Simulated scan of single mutants.
Amino acid sequence: MTNRKKPALGVFVYFAIAFALGTYFTFAAVQGNFGLFSRAEIEAEADALQVQLDLLNTDIAVMENLTRRLSDTYLDLDLLDEQARSVIGLLRSDEIVIR
């Protein structure tokens, strides 16, 4: 005669809760606000913003160079002549304009 015992209901509940919590935390680790997918999106956005920052820093350097070249302490006559021609439309007396 075999006397079989039924497994306790508490064991099934315990494993069901453990499985549910494990599943929830695994899902949160992959797709949650601080999960792997979010981290990949943030890193891609950071790379794109770094590229934009580098372009803006290059533009700032060009502008600073032009500003320095037109400052009172250092005057670049070629740049001044170029700006006078493009902005004001000045010409020298020995130049001929062809339209």
Rank of each mutant, 00 (worst) to 15 (best):
T23L: 03
K5A: 08
K5I: 00
L36T: 14
A84I: 00
D72Y: 09
R99D: 12
K5C: 03
L77M: 11
A61F: 10
Q50E: 15
I96R: 05
G89I: 03
A29S: 15
A61H: 01
A20G: 10
N3K: 14
F37I: 09
D47V: 13
Q31H: 10
M63C: 07
D78W: 00
T23H: 01
E82Q: 15
V30G: 04
T26G: 09
D94Q: 08
T67G: 04
S71H: 04
V97S: 08
I98Y: 02
A46Y: 02
A44V: 11
F19D: 10
L90D: 15
S93V: 08
V51P: 00
L79A: 06
R92W: 06
L56N: 05
F19M: 09
N57F: 06
D47E: 10
L53S: 10
L70S: 05
L56C: 05
L53H: 08
V87F: 04
A28G: 01
V62Q: 06
A8T: 14
F12N: 03
F27C: 09
V97K: 04
R68C: 05
T2H: 13
R39N: 11
L56A: 04
R85P: 00
I17E: 11
L90Y: 13
G32V: 07
A40D: 03
E82D: 15
A48M: 06
L55W: 08
D78C: 00
L75V: 08
G10F: 12
G35C: 01
D76P: 09
Q52S: 07
A18G: 01
L66T: 13
S86N: 13
A29G: 13
G89C: 01
N65P: 06
V97W: 03
A20M: 05
Y24I: 10
A48N: 13
G32W: 01
L21D: 05
D54P: 00
A16I: 15
A20V: 14
R92K: 14
E43H: 01
I98G: 00
Y74M: 07
L21N: 05
R39F: 02
D54W: 02
Q31P: 01
T26K: 03
F15Q: 15
F19S: 08
S71D: 11
K5M: 11
T58N: 10
A44R: 13
L53Y: 10
L49T: 07
A46G: 02
T58G: 04
S38A: 14
A46T: 08
D47N: 09
E43I: 04
L77D: 11
A16R: 15
L36K: 14
D59I: 05
I98E: 11
V11D: 14
G22T: 15
Y74N: 00
G10W: 08
G35Y: 01
A84C: 05
F34M: 12
D54H: 02
I17T: 11
I17Q: 07
F27V: 06
G35M: 01
L70H: 04
G22D: 09
I42C: 01
D47Q: 12
I17G: 00
F15G: 02
L75A: 14
